[in-house]
């Protein structure tokens, strides 16, 4: 009797352990498999262009010259714009929902934000192209051309054709897309802080502002940075929404109004019609570049978190 229960307990435990261990290994194997197939598929281009593939700005399917610099630039800058806008906005929304708003507001708004996270990215892309871009062109770009272009340093960012698409529009659309994730995660983190903490802070005479900035925010720091990393990851890899509004031009320009390209949008737009083997290989190499880039950006973000 004793031995059977014992055997059972050991059995269940070890099965569970093996199961979870093998699923962890499986993810690792899939990751390595993807990496190997990317290197294999992109080898032709990588061996032809060497490190120049990452640094060259030339992407010319006709002359079979491929360099990823402009796509890397477009990916990084559009993601940066997204994160610069979405983190403060997301944090602010989360604080409002979790700490300041009455329940009858925070509940429906919170649900609306979660719904927003479930909207497919192609919808954001089409909305960006057909609704946001015309509005952005009329409502902001013409104004910026008249009033901002003369400013030192940032003036050059806004000196471009007011067509409603380009790097800045891509960054803005991305920020709308990652806002729900950042808001939802930080709001949830705020809600896990026990009320005793708030009461204690108010008890020693802190104002609501002090409670939020000195007590609550420091204690959800990790969760907030984690939310930022998740949002950044989504922004770096986002394809369809960016493809619709970035304008598909392989060049690096100071102006954020100019059309540009991102790694994932280039792959999505060109792979279907690519017939030249070097072109296909270069597109797969772009995938590898995005893989490594995401890895590096995540690594840096984690390092910042540790400090």
């Amino acid at each position: 009797m004793l031995s059977t229960t014992n055997a059972r307990a050991v059995d269940g435990d070890s099965i569970f352990q093996r199961l979870s261990f093998s699923s962890a290994i499986l993810i690792l194997l899939v990751l390595i498999g993807i990496l190997i197939s990317l290197i294999d598929g992109g080898w032709q281009a990588l061996s032809e262009f060497g490190p120049g593939f990452v640094f060259s700005n030339e992407w010319d399917p006709v002359g079979s010259q491929f360099g990823a610099a402009s796509a890397i630039y477009g990916t990084l800058v559009s993601s940066l714009i997204a994160i610069v806008i979405a983190i403060p906005a997301g944090l602010g929304t989360a604080i409002f929902l979790a700490e300041l708003a009455p329940r009858w507001i925070s509940k429906p708004v919170g649900m609306a934000i979660e719904l927003l996270a479930a909207v497919p990215s192609i919808i954001y892309g089409m909305w960006g192209l057909f609704v946001f871009a015309p509005w952005f062109s009329e409502g902001f770009q013409f104004w910026a051309l008249e009033n901002l272009v003369g400013l030192p340093v940032i003036g050059a960012w806004f000196d471009g054709p007011p067509i409603g698409i380009g790097l800045l529009t891509a960054g803005l659309i991305l920020s709308f897309m990652i806002l729900p994730i950042i808001t939802a995660l930080t709001r949830d983190a705020l809600q896990t802080i026990p009320n005793v903490v708030r009461e204690a802070a108010y008890g020693v005479g802190a104002t609501p502002f002090e409670v939020i900035t000195r007590v609550l925010l420091p204690s959800i720091r990790n969760a907030a940075v984690g939310a930022g990393i998740l949002g950044l990851g989504r922004a770096l890899g986002e394809t369809m929404a960016v493809a619709f509004v970035i304008g598909g031009a392989n060049r690096i320009e100071t102006s954020l109004f100019m059309p540009a390209s991102s790694i994932s949008s280039t792959i999505a737009q060109q792979f279907n019609e690519a017939t030249n083997e070097m072109h296909i290989s270069a597109l797969i190499s772009l995938g590898l570049v995005l893989f490594v880039l995401t890895f590096l950006v995540m690594g840096v973000a984690r390092l910042l978190l540790k400090k």
Partner: peptide, 12 residues
């Protein structure tokens, strides 16, 4: 798919 001339103001 080509590299569009840089002299023109292009929209993709």
């Amino acid at each position: 798919d080509i590299t569009w001339p840089r002299k023109a103001t292009t929209i993709g």
